[in-house]
Amino acid sequence: MREIVFDFLEGYDLLGAFWVTVQLTVYSAVGSLIWGTLLAAMRASPVPLMRGFGAGYVNVVRNIPLTVIIVFTSLGLFQTLGVSLGADDFKTINFRLAVLGMIAYTSAFVCEALRSGINTVPVGQSEAARAIGLSFPQVLSLIVLPQAFRSVVGPLANVLIALTKNTTVAAAIGVAEAATLMREMIENEAQLILISAIFALGFICLTLPTGLLLGWVSKKVAVRR
């Protein structure tokens, strides 16, 4: 029975496709966390030019559909401007372009989550930090951001889960991740519902533990006041 129903899976590299999804997610998550933190620092900074750039970036990028951004990285950056991000085969180029697009998009949400975290840090914390002679970057990196991060682990988990699912958009520029394989299988096999269910389950397997783990971390690192 089992062999007959799941027969059609033969010849498809399901794990390989999900592995690409995981890679897309991890690289994009790390990149968005870094760039998103820098954006949040800019938006909290006393320099008007930086605040303006941060606000402008977030408001433009988060209002553009991800598909448009991903397609732009391929059609605009690569094919028109010749940006290949140091790779020379299409597979690697597209993968890197997709990661770049994901970072550009997701960092806007990381920035806003962090900014709400910064607002939970009482103003007395940064006053006390300034009063012992810390500079603005030190106040931010030693006092405000560490506390802000601890209070937004939950919201950042949401962003990470959304990012994991958003990696399916990379299919638009031919990155061989899970959604690309799903489309291929749906075209070739007469098992629509089963195929959809398998991929849905695959994503749940990735995101559910993420959510549970980060929920636990969130409680663990919460700042007691």
Partner: peptide, 24 residues
């Protein structure tokens, strides 16, 4: 505001009504 002010603040101790110890 700036580096010089930070240096000067280091020479001026401040104790607040609400303590403001670094919570983390």
């Amino acid at each position: 505001e700036g580096r010089e002010l930070a240096a000067l603040r280091a020479d001026v101790g401040m104790v607040f009504q609400s303590f403001n110890l670094f919570a983390h």
